[in-house]
């Protein structure tokens, strides 16, 4: 008998309305589980296999429908079908990124999913809470901050170097040395596959994403915000995340010990212990808003 995973993959095609990057997108996603939708965004220049440990955690998937998509130009999601994208320099914008995520959730007819993303996915989680607070039940920004400069670099796509290795080894020490070799090297391997998108993703991460001075406008009661950051993350340190969370009304922050910037991928079992606590927190917070379930 074949040793099948319960995770399944599908494609969905839909339109994203955006003047700079809009078009028709054929998007690949993995899913497993039943219940409250939990939509997961991978990190910049990577793909949805980073969420393998959440997708296959029976304790989580017994209550949550975990959906991990590949952002267009990543993994198995194509660049736009109806744009001459090869004539454009790819620079991910906050406008497109947030519109894409909402359009994806609409395409799957998800009602108020919880959104979770890491790194540039964590930063966009903050943007979703800021721009679309009523569209999401809650957000879990992982390894995120209001501003994360310094990583929009030409080295990621430099034709005189092996861009696959530069991207993969360039992010190597975003991971904690204690994380298992097997999972760190899987993450390294994923990163060899995304060099054509990594730099453009980081335009969002380090340039276009800037919520400094705007965090007070995010209402953590309307859209609960639970932030998680690993202590080995040098790009968005726990201190940066904590400072961000403090400026958001009723946001929560948890420091994750012994883990880095790709927590769900570099050490899935450890990350899931923190994720379970985050999901319980959200359950309590949202139960309070809608009235206690008795």
């Amino acid at each position: 008998m074949a040793n099948f995973s319960p995770v399944t993959g599908r494609y969905v095609t839909f339109e994203v309305d955006d003047p700079d990057l809009g078009g028709e997108y054929k998007v690949f996603f993995l899913e497993n589980g039943r219940g409250q939708p939990l939509v997961c965004q991978h990190t910049a220049g990577c793909h949805n296999h980073q969420w393998r440990g959440v997708l296959e955690d029976p304790e989580i998937t017994s209550s949550y429908r975990v959906i991990a998509y590949d952002l267009p130009r990543h993994g198995k999601s194509d660049p736009p079908n109806n744009r001459e994208w090869w004539k454009e320099e790819y620079r991910l914008t906050t406008d497109f990124y947030t519109r894409f995520i909402v359009a994806f959730c609409d395409a799957l007819e998800l009602e108020r999913p919880i959104f979770m993303g890491s790194s540039f996915g964590g930063n966009v989680a903050l943007q979703l809470a800021y721009r679309y607070p009523d569209r999401f039940k809650a957000v879990i920004p992982v390894e995120a901050a209001d501003y994360s400069p310094g990583f929009f670099l030409d080295w990621w796509q430099h034709p005189h170097a092996n861009a696959a290795q530069v991207c993969a080894s360039g992010v190597w020490d975003l991971m904690a040395p204690q994380s298992p070799d097997r999972d760190r090297w899987k993450t390294w391997f994923y990163y060899t596959q995304g060099s054509e998108a990594f730099r453009g993703d980081l335009y969002f991460y380090s340039v276009d994403h800037d919520l400094r001075g705007k965090l007070g406008e995010i209402d953590g009661d309307r859209c609960p915000v639970v932030m998680l950051t690993g202590d080995y993350d040098y790009l968005t340190t726990p201190q940066m995340t904590e400072a961000t969370a403090k400026q958001i009304k009723n946001a929560e922050f948890m420091e994750m010990k012994g883990i880095g910037h790709f927590p769900m991928s570099e050490n899935p079992p450890l990350f899931n212990t923190y994720l379970r606590r985050a999901l319980e927190l959200i359950q309590r917070k949202t139960a309070k808003v809608t009235g206690p379930a008795r």
Binding site: D173, L174, A176, P177, T237
Partner: peptide, 10 residues
């Protein structure tokens, strides 16, 4: 290594 000493980028 302690956090932030764990590589040349960090």
């Amino acid at each position: 290594p302690e956090p932030m000493y764990h590589g040349i980028w960090a």
